[in-house]
Design a protein around this nucleic acid. Structure first.
Lengths: 172, 172
DNA sequence: CAATAAAAGATAGGTTGCTATGCAATTGCC
DNA sequence: GGCAATTGCATAGCAACCTATCTTTTATTG
């Protein structure tokens, strides 16, 4: 019947002695990729429901972070910063323009480029949106020490770097 | 001009003395949610390009893992195991059926339920697909000790548990 | 037993991600 | 100067997520 399987008991926490014959964790829970994917979806859901009242979506968030830090970037620069593919960025920017968060103006120096500028509304959501993101991070990190969180972030960075410049093993 | 920003140097690795005035890392790199989202996308890309030759996609992978472990599950059980919403599962199963990975048969005991069974092709991709996933995990974890990886997985589980039963703070 | 509630699944519509492709503007090279 | 390569962006099409809603079947309950 396949038990409900509602999140494996938080590892590292003491558990009552298992009445069952110590069923081993399914393999997936020892796979970094599987667990990262799961955690990423949970983070996204948690953020989505908190920024929806602001009229924001999760995909817009990294773009806003970049623009709040430096307004007037071109699409190609946002692509490099946010690290999504160019058509993904084009699509997100279209919706942000539609929703009045940004405006695009042609770059006079290079007519191929379109500079992205925040509107008043784009600026106005900064404080509450950042607060929502902080709250999700705080909630997720409950029960973890600062050292654990820092080490966790360091591992994430190492893994991202490992996967960044790693195409599939070419059939040499 | 916004520097290229091609992956922040892998933290924990020695870096040459910064010639620049020690520009602080943008805030996003200290956000668990941001970094998990980034890592998850990189994992997904790496897995996708390795299982594409098998005719598989990343969304099908968790479903296959569940079915390889126990064939003949109902859609609702897969939903609980894989932890996606029901319409997402329905869509993935439709494509898997279309692609000849699974077959759906009505449950004689409950005519609402449709039992999902692997086809011969669904079984045949198990070994190479699992090997591909292992390779991605191994690649991502390069330079990390076993202890680091275990601690990393424990943190991911804790965060997933924290975010699982955590709706937004009701406007009480 | 009949009416209602709950559960399983399908469908519609939206966002985010990808690849592949096409077009226009700029750059490089002879 | 002129032609090719590169760069910036848009579009089409698909997969994987989501919420909202509907139908059908089973379970509950008065």
């Amino acid at each position: 019947m396949a038990k409900p399987e509602p999140a494996p008991a938080p590892a590292g926490t003491a558990q009552p002695p298992p009445a069952e014959p110590a069923r081993p964790l399914p393999w997936r829970y020892e796979s970094s990729g599987y667990m990262i994917n799961l955690a990423a979806r949970l983070f996204e859901r948690a953020l989505a429901e908190r920024i929806a009242p602001l009229g924001l979506t999760t995909g817009q968030f990294p773009v806003l972070l970049a623009l709040w830090e430096r307004d007037g970037l071109a699409q190609s620069e946002l692509v490099r910063i946010v690290r999504v593919e160019q058509p993904t960025m084009a699509q997100i920017l279209s919706r942000m323009e539609r929703d009045g968060l940004i405006a695009r103006a042609a770059d006079p120096d290079d007519r191929r480029r379109a500079l992205v500028r925040l509107t008043a509304r784009g600026w106005s959501v900064q404080a509450p949106a950042v607060a929502a993101a902080h709250e999700v991070n705080r909630l997720a990190g409950r029960g973890l020490s600062d050292a654990q969180t820092r080490e966790f972030l360091a591992v994430l960075m190492q893994m991202s770097a490992n996967l960044s410049c790693a195409a599939a093993p070419g059939p040499t």
